[in-house]
Design a protein around this nucleic acid. Structure first.
Lengths: 131, 131, 131, 131
DNA sequence: GTGGTCTAGACCACG
DNA sequence: GTGGTCTAGACCACA
């Protein structure tokens, strides 16, 4: 038996709760740990587990649905969707994300992180994308 | 003598003006193109060049000063600071930025960018950090 | 004997199933293709044909009964009612629907539909109401 | 001196307030009575006038901005935008609106409105679209 | 029971 | 001062 969706969020963080939920769920979705067809906990259930309002979870689910990962149906809960023909990223979107990546690296350097350490981190992530 | 600062911003962008200014200035600061001791244009001058209110530029300068790049002196403009006293990155800050990086990569994958392309981008940035 | 009802609905549509059923049945009722005295399939039968829960069909039948089209009898199915007793439209209801019509046209214009095309559509419907 | 935006809404109506605001503003926008460049009242101002929460007005403004009518800028209020290259309506959107129109007419007939009256209304709107 | 809407209130971001 | 975000609560729609 596999554990069904086990995430943690920090309510004291300045990062909004719904954002943390989206980020936490996107990882297993991208990696396939949450496979198509799987059911997610109901908004009210997950909300109670995390200690937030159910609308907060609902907003997170809706964002993931908008990204094409979830299927939300009245009275039938949330399920992971099969992403058959995944649309290639819009070029503008890719450029925007690329810019954010550059900015993030600049912020790391600005924060005093040694370039060698940043480079190592980037290579590590790059490697992990191979399979 | 070389023009010390040459940036462009898009006032119609959803990204706030002051953010764009900060991001645009941080790159040459990080790379050393704006070396310690160099003078930046006055808040009013840069504001006129960019077509924004001088308070907007002021806010950008203040953020860069808070990051330790600029020295703001009343009536004498802004100068790039010698970063001898730059503290090593706080471990928490590094962890936070690392998390943002991971999230950004997940967003790229979610947006449909091929992993190979993401990996290539990461390697490219990693290489550019060598020197 | 002719098949009395032949409708199709799209379960993946954001429009709720019961709404689609109501809308699909109202057309033949209004046009008289489903004449007074005709029998509709049982709730369970139609539900099975459409692949929905029988409560969903039941809700649709109830709405049409409330509009005065159907007569629902326990255990004997739904029959089309003679509309001799049909009240003339309440003035408020007519005003409300008129307002919705105006709004719909404004939405079409807002969506970029050429006015000439909207006008043509309106005339076409207008003509079809003649007989 | 022209009166600046004068709308009324009914807080007792089942139609949500923000929806009424959108509908009320779209008409002068479509007709050009609110011309490009014109300023709308601030969300807080209009909210007070209408007796609703400012977020309610904000949501209405945002919907009109999404339709391409308004430009919302932090600290600079809401202005009517020049719709240079108005995008032709997406075919799906047109089909959807067409279906809604058909449904609306069916509802009118179902409500007991004489077909002749419906036809007259449709022709009237059709005529008004000529110029 | 499910997910969804609408509005409100506290707070933030921006110029 | 502007618009915007995030969360909450009451209520609705749906199966």
């Amino acid at each position: 038996m596999r554990r069904p969706v086990k995430i943690r969020i920090d309510l004291d963080s300045p990062v909004p709760a719904y954002r943390q939920i989206v980020d936490a769920l996107r990882v297993p979705l991208v990696e396939g740990a949450l496979a198509p067809g799987a059911s997610l906990p109901s908004v009210r259930r997950l909300a109670m587990d995390l200690g937030v309002h159910f609308n907060t979870v609902g907003e997170a689910y809706r964002e993931l649905a908008a990204e094409g990962w979830l299927d939300l149906k009245h009275g039938r809960g949330a399920t992971v969707v099969a992403r058959g023909s995944q649309p290639a990223a819009a070029p503008e979107r890719w450029q925007e994300l690329r810019g954010q990546l550059r900015n993030l690296v600049a912020q790391m350097r600005s924060a005093g992180v040694p370039p060698s350490r940043i480079a190592a981190e980037l290579r590590a992530i790059s490697e992990s994308l191979k399979p």
